[in-house]
Structures are given as structure tokens and as C-alpha cells.
Design a protein around this nucleic acid. Sequence first.
DNA 1: ACCCGACGTTATCGATGCTAACACGGTATG
DNA 2: CATACCGTGTTAGCATCGATAACGTCGGGT
Lengths: 206, 206
Amino acid sequence: MPTARERILDATTTLLADKDALAISTRDICAEAQVGMPEIYRQFGDKQGLLTAVADLGFQKFLASKRANPTTDDPVADLKTAWDSHTTFALANPHLYRLMFTPAGSSKPHGISEARELLHAALGRCLNAGRLRLPMETAGHAILSANVGVCLMALSFPDPYADPSVSATLRDTVIGKATGEEEDPRLGTATLLAQQLLGTLTGQGE
Amino acid sequence: MPTARERILDATTTLLADKDALAISTRDICAEAQVGMPEIYRQFGDKQGLLTAVADLGFQKFLASKRANPTTDDPVADLKTAWDSHTTFALANPHLYRLMFTPAGSSKPHGISEARELLHAALGRCLNAGRLRLPMETAGHAILSANVGVCLMALSFPDPYADPSVSATLRDTVIGKATGEEEDPRLGTATLLAQQLLGTLTGQGE
DNA sequence: ACCCGACGTTATCGATGCTAACACGGTATG
DNA sequence: CATACCGTGTTAGCATCGATAACGTCGGGT
């Protein structure tokens, strides 16, 4: 028998597959986890703390599914693969996804920054391959924001925003803008140099 | 004295300026509107109905602020103006915006389709000007999804996603892709990089 | 043996969404 | 003028919810 904490997290995740986070009562969770009510509050402080913990657990699953994607020799293609895996995850786990990316109150899941770092690592590979023509920060924020936007719109208004072509179009547009192939090599070189200089000054080389 | 329905809607909108929709109790609303509890349910069925009505009212305000933007002879510039007014509205009315674009349960506000039509009208003007190189449906959905994504990320994770340059970059990218006719992208990139370098060197490192 | 921490049980509190039952005041219809 | 009606206000109450208190149990480690 797993520990009480694990059972609670497990039960909440299970219930989250059907209902929305707000439609789940602590008593339902306790019944599903075979735990007494106070156990939730001993472990997580309050319901919000539990939900945040579940959201972070969701991020681990989310990031694991991204890390499972092999790193090819085409970093731009890897970016697109990551985008698609993001969208797939959102549509497969709607309530969990909304819990992760539209948190209520002031308790933000910690996993969002890990997602950001993972994306930046992928962008770093593009940079090293000379295929990044936007600042990494800007590119990362833009890509993630657009991706989340597509997913949330598809979840909130499936008609007509769940159309896969919307995700694909936006994916190619945003990633294309960030990584588009360059025409004048000198401009690309200058951009690369500037970015490396910025990275050095910011303290994070690599 | 306005009618009871108006007072309720007004009170809810007022409270929505401070708290989140879920943090507002029906009793708070009744106290603010000087109405008895049953009045809410006579008028809106249940709390969700009231919130949906408030969301639709928000859409009217939202669309009015968009229609207030004059139609110039540059339809692409109009698109960008609309994007900025969208972002401004979201940041100015965070709780109302989240109520509008991430509705809970199965009650979707009706205003979303009006927003879609308004956007399509603007895209139609681009088409007539020969400045649309994407299907209108696709372009409209992509633009709105990206815009909503930027706003929701900025609201949920202001650090670091509330950076105005994210909205601007995504705006120019998506609208640029839909309407063609982009300025040399490397110019914008170089400018952006230079600004970040300047900021870093000046001591205020991003 | 002792205590202590993790876990379970029961009961309870205040707040919330929601509803029933009834009373009041205009308005229009006869 | 009387009637019925509709919108509105008042009170009381229900079931459920999140959260807590008080207490009991068990096992492990010093």
C-alpha cells in the first residue's frame, strides 16, 4: 500500500481525468484515496496546495513526455516535435492542463520554469547550429505563449478552435520566424555574435 | 434606481475588478447589489449563468473598445492595433478576461463568436487589399489563439511572460505571416538585441 | 519501555450555492 | 374599481463544501 500522500495525489489525478479541478471535492478525494479528511491538510496545507502539487506532478509527466522525444541533428525539427507533443498532452489531459497553465489564486506551479528551461535548451541547440534569429528569451516566451494559447483555446472553445491546422499553422509560423533560414550570412553571423555577447554578459554562456 | 438585473450585473462586474470570479460569493453580490438572494436565481438560473452573462457583458465592452479604433487605409496596421487593444484590455481587466476566455464548465460565453466575426471582417479588408496570403479562417484562428495565449500567460505567470516585447514579437510574427509584407526581420532582431545589450550594460539586466 | 511521528476516526464549525414559502407593490386587464 | 399578475423583497432553511479540533491507533527508533 503506497503512502497516504501518494494515494491522495493519485486519487486527485484520477478524478482530474473526468471532472474539472473545481468540481472535485476534498471528500471525493478522501473516499477515492481511502484517507481521512485531515490527511489532506496535514500533507498539503489546504486544497490549493494539493492542487498545486498535482499540477507539478503533471508538469513532471509533461516534461518527461518531452524529454522522451529523441534529439535529432535538426534542432528546428525538434522544436516542432516538442510543440506537437505539448499540444497532444493538452488535448489528452484537458483538466490537468488547465490546472497547470491557468492556476487559480496566487499559487503558481513550479514546473513552468522547468518547461521554460527545457525550451531554452532546445533553442540553444538551434543557436549553436546558427539557426536562431531571435533572442533566445524572446523566442522562448513567444513559442510557449503561442503554444499555450492554441491549447487553451482548443479546450475552451473546441468549436472551431480545436482544428489541428490552427496548431500546425501557428507552430510553423512562430518557429519559422524564430529559426528561419538566413539569406545573408553576414547578418546571421552578426546576430550570432550579438547573441553570444549577450549570453556572456548575462552570465550564462553555453 | 436601475432594475434588479442591471444592479446584479453591475455589482458582479465591480467585485470582479478586485477578486477572482470564484472568490466572489453570491451573498457578496447580493449585498453589493442590494438584492435578495433568490433574485440572482430568478434572473440567471444559477451562479454560472450570472458569470456567463457578466462575461458576455465584458465581451461587449471588449468589442466596443475594438470598434472604437478607427479603420485606416492600412488594414494590416489595423490588425496590429486590434491586437494591442486586445492585450491592453486583458491586462487591465485580468479577472474579467479570464472569465471570458477560460470559462468553467460547459457554459461558453456567446461573445467569442462576435470577436471572431470582427476579426474576420478586418481580415476581409486585408483580403480586398490583396494583403492576405493565408485562408481567412486559418489566419483568424491563429491570430486570436496567439493573442489569447500571450495574455493568459502574462496573467498567470507575469514573471517573465508579461514582457511587452513578447506580445509585440508574436503580434508581428503572426500578423506578418498572415499578411505577408514584412519588413526585414533582421532589422527588428538587431534592434531588439541591441536594446537588451544596452539594458544589460546599463545595469538593469532584463 | 518510552516517546514520537505518521496515520486514522469522528464531530464540528462557518461559509457557500441554492431553494421554498410568503409578502409587498405596481400595472394592466376585466 | 376590483382582479389577476408580474417583478421584487424577506426570511428561513437545506445540503454541501473547505477546514479544524480532539482523540485514538500503530510502528519504529533512541
